[in-house]
């Protein structure tokens, strides 16, 4: 418990800075936070996330290739979550009724997930203290980690997990992005909470 005083607001700003300041086009960033309720922080759970979405390259909205039934399901879940958050009964809402893209859905579903004992992409990076960088749909499909395979199914081409002292920064993109040391360094600086927040 002596490690970091966690500040949710600055966590959000850091994730945003990471994505908005990058030359590459990242779709989302998530901070998986190690839990102090378990020995050695063996569980990584949702800390915070920032969803930017896909680049609009003049082709209009992101292509949605899901079935009508799947879209109806996603919209219902979004409506329910919206009313849960706003505290009122579900009513008409133009934004909620827009199609829910694959990457939006992947991001939303991620909020329900956690990773234990080195199993799963973020957890593996955390326990090995080694970044994982997978670029290419084929490589995501061939990964031993279910999260990487799932990412490919929802349209990602690149997934990255970079460990920090208190968790793991995961980033994903629908574009093919090759490994850069620049991103690793940024994560190292932005997510080293031990140095920044103990005061």
């Amino acid at each position: 418990k002596s490690v970091a005083v966690f500040n949710q607001e600055t966590l959000q700003q850091r994730l945003q800075a990471l994505i908005d300041g990058a030359r590459e086009s990242w779709t989302y960033a998530i901070f998986w936070q190690s839990s102090y309720d378990y020995p050695d922080g063996s569980v990584l759970g949702w800390g915070d996330g920032y969803y930017k979405g896909e680049e609009d390259k003049g082709k209009g909205k992101a292509k949605v290739v899901t079935s009508a039934a799947e879209q109806a399901h996603r919209k219902k879940v979004l409506r329910d979550l919206n009313s849960l958050i706003s505290g009122s009964a579900a009513g008409p809402d133009d934004a909620v009724d827009e199609e829910v893209t694959d990457t939006e859905w992947f991001f939303l579903v991620s909020m329900t997930q956690s990773f234990v004992n080195g199993v799963g992409l973020p957890s593996q990076a955390f326990f090995d203290s080694t970044p994982i960088w997978i670029s290419g749909a084929d490589r995501l499909s061939a990964s031993a980690c279910e999260r990487a395979r799932q990412g490919k199914v929802f349209g990602l081409q690149t997934m990255v997990c970079i460990p920090s002292p208190n968790g793991v920064v995961e980033m994903g993109s629908t574009e093919l992005i090759h490994r850069t040391s620049d991103l690793m360094n940024k994560v190292k600086i932005l997510f080293n909470f031990n140095n920044l927040e103990t005061s």
Binding site: Q8, Q12, Q33, W46, G47, D48, G49, Y50, Y51, G53, L78, L81, N82, L84, I85, G87, D93, D94, A95, V96, E98, E104, F107, L108, M111
Partner: peptide
Amino acid sequence: DEDLPLARKRSLQRFLERRKERLIPAVPY
């Protein structure tokens, strides 16, 4: 509502707000 952990609730709130901004851009006067 109380079953939703705070971190997830905040993230979800932000996600929904930003989605609304993305999909329904403010109309300038």
